[in-house]
Structure formats: structure tokens, C-alpha cells
Write a protein that binds this DNA or RNA. Structure first.
Lengths: 213, 213, 213, 213
DNA sequence: TATGAATGAGCCTTCATTCAT
DNA sequence: AATGAATGAAGGCTCATTCAT
């Protein structure tokens, strides 16, 4: 086989891309290292030149996904001209749009698969740990702006809502059908609103959809 | 070598017991069928006489665990002399006691293990689907009694809170340390209370603990 | 493939036979487990049903070889009608005959191979530890009979001579050519004689050969 | 990454040093080429610039060790003012001192390791072939001086004793404990003495130790 | 009902070596 | 003289499952 040398960082990303795709398609256990290297078109040895083990690439895939998600939402979170409730609305809308466009999972996650509990869990903890602080800051902002009337700890509220959002809306996990999912999508807005003490209808996801159009 | 014949139902339960114990200890993937039969003291063949596959016994283990949980909480849920908020308090307290006594997991689940995502997920859907109706009924009761002031759909609220409870408090999942867990344990009472529109302090888990003593 | 069930002990011996043959032919490292099972005509899984690892079968092969050697020489060592020096002569002669008949190695060992140092060493320690006591007893006998005039410790002398015999005559190890080997074969008789204080010519291996014919 | 150019001979020695150290620590098979280059801080390619293969560096390591040993003992062997028995005593004492100072192996060898049979054997043949002539000359000297009363062939006696010494005292090989090793250390002096026809006590290694102090 | 020998596919990983730069 | 990315063969081992008895 022709020996094609590439910039290491490029190779690494290729491997990560392939792994992410396959993990999402066939699951972690269902994906063999040989599948990954075949996808990329490199040798088995090359894989182990870049990653110490299959487990390590899983971690790397997840880390990258989380970072990517963080980067995606940072502009919204840091936008000085937005009120706290608008920020949250936008983030949810953004996430939902991804969701509606065939990305399987809930918040920030594109590595869902029916039999992919392993990665899903790995991802979860990291998502919550990384994103909760961002949300917490938004919640704090809202409390100061007066649009969130609550005395709950912002960080814990962020964690709790994130966890519920991440899991409850995970169709692959609960095997919700479309209708069931729709109902929960609507309901969760209300729960967020209640927990944060926002004004009624602030997170009405139906209104969001309409606005999007 | 000695061929010991037992009542089929007894054998089946022995196998389920062994599987539950090992799944909880070593995880699903980490437990080989050979481990299970060794634990029980029967042959590989016997296993496949009772269960079509390893997957099937996993389902059976989970089903049994859920039924057991349901049976455990039914008396509380059906107690005609208890107000809705007391019922929920009791259920949480009961669950916590199990938790404090070395049962690893959150609600109703004794099959937690750091590397047991597969079973954990299988369990979750069933727990939520099975228990949510029970909780929903309690919530309805509370709304009628007036102690829960909310117009949210009882079934969905039950699902959402159950999901959050089940996952957020899963120390194995998030790797919470004791202190972190304690903080979340306290906080979740407030979230339940807010969602259900109960009076402040109704689900203060600290008070629960004190009462228990 | 047709599933052929055999008595476990028979299967085990078949595997040991194949392993011994292949280890001797291609060396330990050079022999793959797949080679062994192909030779026997069973599946890879069957191998691991009988042996936990490749290492374990190596130990078993060696143990069996040592036991076999021990059994081969026991009748001579225990022969009540033989003087000590005749016993040693016979043992050497017996061993040499094996040697001349294509068994590659030195004493009791049929697992020699140019690149088989690993097994060779494993074997050595066990040979020396197991056979030395037998020889020691013969030496004691000789001391009492008066044909061995020495005050050396029988056990240590046995060990030392066995070690020298085992290694020095190992053609695969030193790459002796035939002539060189012949010379050492002759010389070692004299060293044994001197160490044991036997009468001159007692272990003249040339005379042995002649007698054998 | 920084490309450091060194005198080729220096580089070669660095590689040999690293290889010798690692072979002695982790064994030949247990040492990867990548371990060696990491130790030195050069690239894989550099290794293959200096040595054609892993095998070749093993040979080189052994050659160097043997030459070093030879150089170490030459002054004693060539010392015109020493009697033959004193020379042998000194050589053994010198070797023992190395032994006592943590060099693992027996005579001249610092490449011992429990799982290092491969190198050990490679070394042995060369040690015996190279050192035997030196010893043979000392033995001849002793025969002429009259302190060794034997008619055995000096070269063969040297070989035989060297072989026994090298292997019997190899604690890693036989897994002798300290006490067992001590006993064999004492005994081997007697065997050398007997084979060479030296006067009783000539090679009493206990006396050697005392003299050393 | 129960046994346990037998299957076989498949997987992760290691590592000596090559070669374009 | 040196780099380090890339190769690819090979190998040990696990384990769910089957089946003759």
C-alpha cells in the first residue's frame, strides 16, 4: 500500500472523525479498531501510534465533542446584548435545530446510539461538568436582571436542569416516539421556567419554533 | 459433577440472583456467563436451558428488580391515611435509607456500577415508565388535597423529576464525592418542591434524616 | 466442522503432545497456539478450555517431560542388584542412546531448540531439582559401598554434575560440532569420576558404547 | 524534536548502554526498540541507522560485555608474579565482589534476568569460548608449577568448570534463596579444587572473603 | 433437567522495521 | 546523521453459544 504521510494533527483528526462517526453508527463495542482504520485508510499500527488504546480514542472523541459544543454556545452565552432568558432560549433553540436536523442526541451530543450507553455516560458527566458553569453564569445574570426570581443556587440549578434535559429528552434511551417526544419537549420548558422563576411562557418551546421560522 | 436436580423455578431464581450480584459487582460486560454458572454451581448448558441468551437474563434481572421496587413502594403509595407530600417524603426516605446502607444506586436500582452503563440504561427506561404512573397518582392526590399548587401535568412532572433524581444523584455516574453528593441531595428537595408547588421546606431532606433518627 | 468429543484426559495429552513436538521444532516463541490446535485438529477455544494460557501449557509440557524422565530412570536407580557406579553408567548410557537416536537434547530433555532458551531454562531448574535427589541417593549408596571415595556432600555433588552435564553437552547451546561433542562426552566421564572419587575409568563413556553393542 | 548530532561512536555507545541496561532490567523480549530509543532520546530511525536489527544490537551488547570482562581479568591472568592457584582465587574473588555489589549474574555477565534466557544463552557460549582459553592457560601454568596435580586436558577442564560455575550459581535461573546460594558458593570451591588436583582448601571461598576484608 | 466438552469468530494490541523528508 | 510517521503481520485470548450424551 502506498505510504501517505500527513501532518500528525490532520491524521489525528481523521481518526477522531472516523471514530466519532462509527461510534455513533455502530456503538462503541460494535466498532472495532479495524473498522476505524479501514475508514481512514491507514494501518492498524498507525492507530496505535496516535492513541494508546480504543478507550483513549473514546475519551478523545468525547472531549472534542464537548469542546466543540462549548465553542458553539460560547458566543451566545457571552453575548453582552442578550438578556439571560433570551440566551437560554437561543441555546435551546440552537440545540433543537441540531436535533431536528438528524443529530440524534440531546444537548451537545452527537454520539448517541441505542447500544452506546458506555459512551453516553462518559459524555454525560463531562457535559454536565463543563456546561453547568456556563449556564450557571447565565442564571446569575438573570437573577441580577430580575427576570429569574429564585433564591436557588445557580450552579446546582444548572446541573439539575441540564441533567434532566440531557436524559429525559433522549429518545434513544427512552424510545420515545415522535409524539411522546414532542410532549416532553413542550413540558420541559415549563419546568425550566418554574425552577428559574422566570415569567410564564418564557421558555415555551413552541413559540421558539415559530419565531425561528 | 454430581447432578443436582432442583425445582426449575428455584434454579431460575438462583441464576437470577447470581447474575444480579455479578452484574452489580463486575458490570454486565465484565460478567461472563461462565461466572454466573460457577457462582451457582451448575453447568454452562444449564444456563442456556433457562435463558436463551445473556441478554435475556439481563432483561429478567432488571424486570425482577423493578417489580421488587414497585412492590416495596406500593404500600406507601396506596396508604389511604397519608397525605401526598408525606408519601413522597417517605418514599425518598425509604430509598435513601437503602442508599445509605450500601446499595449503590439511586432510586430503586441496585444494579449500579461504574462500568455498567448498559444495564443502567436498560433499567432507567423501565424504572421511569413503571414508577412514573405511581408518582403521578400521588401528585394528583396532592393537587386535589391542595398541598401541591401547580397546573403541570402530573405524569410528565413525575417523569421529569424521576429522571433527574435517578441520574443527578448517581454518584457512580458523576463520580461525586461525599460532600458533593450531600449538596445535591439537599438541593433536589427544593427542586421537587418548586416543581410541585409544595410549601417551602416540604421536601427538606435534612429534616427527613432527623426524623428518621 | 464435525464436533468430535473425546475423553478429556486424552484431549489434554493430545494437546501436550502437539505442543511438545512444536516447541521442540519451532521453539516456544515460534509456536503459535493456533499451530498447536491445528496440529490436534481442534478449535482455538478448546485449547483454552484445557489450558489457561500458552505459558501454562509450556509448564505442563515440561512437568510431563520431567516426570517421564524420572519414571524412565527410576527402575535403574531403584534396582537393588546394581552397584552405584553401574547405576550411573547405565543412566548415562540410557540417556546417550536417546541422544544418538535423534532426541536433540542432553539429559532427559527432548525440548531443545536453538532458539528455545526460554523452555530450556524452565526445564533445567526442574530437572536439576527433581533428579538431583535421585542421583544423590545413588552417590550415597556408592559412598557406603566404597566405590565412591569422597567426603563431598552427595546432594551438592549431584547438582553440580547434573548442571554441568546438562549444559556442557548441549550441542544446540554451544553449537558443538560432532567431533567437539565427542571430545566433551569423553571428558565428562573423567570429571564425574574425579568428583565422586570413583576408580579411574569407571565412567569411561567409550567403554560404555562398546558394551552397549 | 531538536536534532542533536553526535559523534557516531558516542551515539553507538549510548544505544548499547541503554540496551544493556534495559535488557538486564526487562529482559530481551521485554525490551522494545522503542524503549531503547526513548532512553537515549533519539528516534526509531536513528536506531536502525546504527544497527540492522534488534538482534544485532543484542549481539553487540554481548560482545562488548565479554570483551569488557576479558579486559578486566587479563591483568590477573597475565600477572607474572602470581601462582596459578592465586590467579584463580583472585578471579573468583573479583567476580564475587561484582556479584555482591548488585551485579546480578555469575561470571562476567551483567545481563541476567529471570526472563532473559535468550540473552543468557547467547552470552554463555561466548563467555565459555572466550574465557576458557584464558583459564586453560592458568591451569597449564598450575600443572607446570606443580600446584595442580591432574592429567586432565586443561582446555576441557576449564570449559567444564566455567560452565558449572556460570550456571549452577545463577540464582535467577534456579531461584536459589540466599542460604542455598551460599551453600553452593562454598561447595563449588571444593569441586574446582578436586578437578584441578589442587591442595585441599585452595579454593575455599570463605577464606577468600575473609582475606578480602 | 443437566452436563461440560467443543466451537469459532473476532478483537485489541505489540512491535520490529521501513522510508520519505 | 537524524527524524518520526507509517506499516502490517501476527498472536494470545475471551466468550457467548451449541450439542451429544
Amino acid at each position: 500500500m502506498p505510504r501517505i504521510v500527513k501532518d500528525p494533527e490532520v491524521r489525528r483528526q481523521e481518526l477522531l472523525d472516523a471514530a466519532e462517526k462509527l461510534f455513533g453508527t455502530k456503538g462503541y463495542a460494535g466498532t472495532a479498531v479495524s473498522d476505524i482504520v479501514r475508514e481512514v485508510g491507514v494501518s492498524q499500527g498507525t492507530f496505535y501510534y496516535y492513541f494508546k488504546s480504543k478507550d483513549e480514542i473514546a475519551d478523545a472523541v468525547i472531549d472534542r465533542a464537548v469542546e466543540r459544543g462549548l465553542a458553539e454556545f460560547a458566543p451566545i452565552a457571552d453575548d453582552g446584548g442578550l438578556s439571560a432568558d433570551r440566551k437560554i432560549l437561543r441555546i435551546i433553540a440552537h440545540d433543537r435545530r441540531g436535533f431536528d436536523h438528524g443529530r440524534m442526541g440531546g444537548l451537545f451530543s452527537r454520539i448517541h446510539h441505542e447500544e452506546n450507553a458506555f459512551l453516553h455516560q462518559k459524555l454525560l458527566a463531562r457535559v454536565v461538568r463543563k456546561f453547568a458553569p456556563v449556564f450557571a453564569r447565565i442564571i446569575e445574570q438573570g437573577k441580577q436582571e430580575g427576570c429569574f426570581r429564585t433564591d436557588k443556587d445557580a450552579a446546582l440549578a444548572a446541573e439539575f436542569l441540564l441533567t434532566g434535559y440531557q436524559f429525559w429528552l433522549d429518545a434513544a434511551l427512552f424510545r420515545w416516539n415522535e409524539e411522546e417526544l414532542e410532549a416532553r419537549l413542550t413540558a420541559i420548558g415549563g419546568f425550566i421556567e418554574t425552577i428559574l422563576g422566570a415569567e410564564p411562557g418564557a421558555f415555551d418551546l413552541k413559540r421558539i419554533k415559530e419565531r425561528e421560522n
